[in-house]
């Protein structure tokens, strides 16, 4: 039997779709870990990104710190997260994983949000201010809606990265699809390992698609038209 055949057999075995080690449970765990991590990162990164984007104060310092953060491997975060979790009495599994994922997601969201807000045409901001919008109104009624496609792109990147990396949680006794990979490796059960990897990849792609749908729903058609209009002259054009 080829490895692929074995993977297919593993995936279609009804035993693997039931119980606490079943695929539905693992996917739910995986999504829960990822969702909580993305949510916490969002609560931290979004307001901060909007603030430094709008005021352009503290941008250099923040972005530099974020870039250092981005350069660190996720495994290193996990190594830091484990003792931190013990120190806070949060135990193994779920919390160390979340603690490792949050700092992974924050730079992706924050840097994108900051850049998206900075990228809004200064003439729009001045028109808004000149018409008598207060600073929060300028941000909420003009900067955020106009920057929304890029802000969502940042959140999407972070979410996809988190879903892919949440796999590491299994190393610290967490749940999620990473279990199949870690356990598969330990038991030399390569069908299990590969099935886990495929499921993680599918989940990442699904996340990507979900955000594309969200973007479609919340971004103004006016901006989409703008982009299509700008994109048109390039289509098929000589470069």
């Amino acid at each position: 039997m080829t490895l692929l055949g074995a993977v297919w057999a593993w995936l279609t075995n009804s035993v693997h779709w039931q119980g606490s080690d079943g695929i539905p449970t693992r996917i739910a765990e995986h999504l829960w870990i990822s969702g909580v991590s993305v949510f916490i990162a969002l609560v931290v990164a979004l307001p901060l990104g909007l603030l430094i984007g709008h005021t352009n104060r503290g941008a250099l310092v923040t972005v530099s710190i974020m870039n250092v953060g981005r350069a660190l491997p996720s495994l290193a975060f996990l190594a830091f997260a484990l003792p931190a979790s013990f120190a806070l009495n949060l135990g193994l599994g779920f919390w160390p994983t979340v603690i490792a994922l949050v700092p992974l997601a924050i730079p992706l969201m924050l840097v994108n949000t900051y850049a998206a807000i900075r990228g809004v045409d200064p003439d729009l901001v001045e028109a808004a201010r000149g018409m008598g919008m207060r600073e929060l109104e300028v941000l909420g009624k003009v900067e955020v809606p106009v920057a929304l496609p890029l802000i969502i792109a940042g959140i999407r990147n972070a979410a996809v990265t988190v879903v892919a990396t949440a796999t590491l949680g299994a190393l610290v006794a967490g749940g999620g699809l990473g279990r199949y990979i870690v356990d598969g490796l330990a038991r030399q059960d390569y069908a299990r390992l590969l099935a886990g990897a495929i499921l993680v990849a599918l989940l990442s792609i699904t996340t990507e698609v979900a955000f594309a749908v969200i973007e479609r729903l919340v971004v103004s058609p006016g901006l989409r038209l703008d982009r299509e209009r700008l994109a048109l002259p390039d289509a098929g054009g000589a470069r």
Binding site: L124, E126, G130, M131, V146, G222, L223, D226
Partner: peptide
Amino acid sequence: LRRRIGYVIQQVGLFPHR
């Protein structure tokens, strides 16, 4: 003050999302 004064700039500054 600004809400009571009309303001037009060269780049128009129409909000693309509205």
